[in-house]
Amino acid sequence: MALGTRTDRRPSMARIIWDSSVGKKTVMAVSGLVMLLYLVAHMLGNLKIFFGADEFNGYAHWLRTLGEPALHYEWALWGVRVGLLAAVVLHAVSAYQLSRRDIKARPSTYVHKRLRTSYATRTMRWGGVILGLFIVWHLLDLTTLTVNENAQPGHPYENVLATFGTWYGNAIYLVAVLALGFHIRHGFWSAAQTLGVGSATRDRALKAAATALALALTVGFASVPVAVMTGWVS
């Protein structure tokens, strides 16, 4: 090879971090916390449905005009969507790659697997798949209105009622909410361990906080379809 033709380059710091298991776990933790903050805000917004159509539709309109007049209509909302999409992709890819590494490192299954892991831990992977599929459904249902047969563009309150006026809309949403609860319960505690917040003395408190947070989000999100099904919201 002639002098000056070497193309070997040292990998960048970002690449080194991404290639390491610790780096991927950190990416999972940070992206998971970003999505968790969004979920809390999203749940609080959903609960406005209990204050009537005007309140809920007004909130939906405010989301689209956020940042005006500095930003154009829906620019802020699309910024949030793009950021969330990046968080979801990073979370899913790092989770998948860590899973593959774990399988390669431990090709044989544990004999006492049930004693080593909780129910939430064993269902994290399937829970992630369920949530991924639900995100696609949720966007097609209440954002693009593609699968919502009785949808009315510009009427978010009525569209929510249309979704939860069907048995399959309720079933899909409630299954996803339960999967979310289990995912958050384990994920919140795991993220705290990865980011160095956890310790032997804080372990019980962190697990209690994770359980409380998961329960609050599960009940908060599930309350909307239940309210529509029972006629409380109509």
Rank of each mutant, 00 (worst) to 15 (best):
A176C: 04
A176N: 04
A176H: 02
V177N: 00
V177R: 00
L178Q: 00
A179I: 11
L180R: 00
L180E: 04
G181C: 08
G181F: 07
G181E: 06
F182H: 05
F182C: 06
F182Q: 01
H183R: 03
I184A: 01
I184N: 02
F188V: 13
F188A: 07
W189H: 08
S190Q: 12
S190W: 14
A191W: 05
Q193L: 12
Q193S: 06
Q193V: 15
T194F: 11
T194K: 05
L195E: 04
L195I: 11
L195H: 04
V197L: 14
S199N: 12
A200Y: 08
A200H: 07
A200N: 08
R202L: 15
R202G: 06
D203W: 09
R204V: 15
A205N: 07
L206S: 05
L206M: 14
L206H: 11
K207V: 10
A210E: 02
T211D: 06
A214V: 14
A214E: 09
L215R: 00
A216S: 14
L217K: 02
L217N: 03
L217W: 10
L217F: 10
L217E: 04
T218L: 15
V219G: 00
G220F: 12
F221K: 00
F221L: 14
F221M: 09
A222P: 02
A222R: 04
S223L: 12
S223G: 09
V224S: 01
P225D: 05
P225V: 08
P225H: 06
